[in-house]
Amino acid sequence: MIKHLLSMDQLSADDITLILDTAESLRQVTDRPIKKLPTLRGRTVCNLFYEASTRTRISFELAAKRLSADVINFSADAKSSVSKGESFKDTAWTLEAMGVDAIVVRHGSSGAPHQLSNWAKASVINAGDGAHEHPTQALLDLFSMREHFKDFSGLKVAIVGDIMHSRVARSNIKGLITMGAEVTVSGPPTLIPPQVASWGAKVSYDIEPILPGTDVCYLLRVQQERQSEQLFPSLREYAALWGLDARRMKMMPEQSLVMHPGPMNRGVEIGADVSESPRSIVLNQVANGLAVRMSLLYLMLGAPNQEAAA
């Protein structure tokens, strides 16, 4: 298994399948009365979060604890070293000196996990960096899709919203294409990078024509600041043109799914009725996040000769 997980580029289809299969075994653990495995006993995982995050940090923390690892949470403001405060590199070295085995890092600066992997001997897991990638989100999304559709081959996924600034979109597009799915992106033209075609995804600025052929409609969170940057005129117009409301959801096939990485802006990118419909698997995504992160920690840190989980 890889030493660091920085980008979905690092994972082949076989790697992804192994991670998802292992997650499936580990998920059974969470159904037991005693939800804990001894695999990572004596190992230390640090959650180094330079951006506020609730679900990702808690998910990683719980995943590590379920595998009996010791967990440290470290939250900091990302600052230039010119301003006051400890530099990113000094923090990395401090953690190194304390002997942590893995650093789960979330940072607003794209590439920060790459840089950290140059400084630290510990395994680095990217928990979201700037507008670059969020590989564990993509893995849990793939896991959630696989629960409903046995095969990725020919699966049609629409990713809707701010592709330009979305680390979730980048990781998901890479993972889905590696697994053989077909990806179409939709959203305001200002938020769709012209390079998307070279990533292997199709583009449709208009959402409605693609919905009848969509198995999974993946909605991205709209960041309020994009409006003030004049990337689209208003939240109202966004909702009118790209929001998935009940009317639009009806255009999708019956067995199709609606996904969202959270937190949701109800009434903007997703209608309140859509978010609560049975087709929405947002809460499954959260539950699956735990299993997938356990799987990753297990595969990356667990000794290979230890007995298989579950």
Binding site: S80, S87, F88, H107, G111
Partner: peptide, 10 residues
């Protein structure tokens, strides 16, 4: 060194 040895965006 300390100015270059930080996050790329900074």
């Amino acid at each position: 060194l300390e100015e270059k040895d930080q996050e790329l965006t900074f």
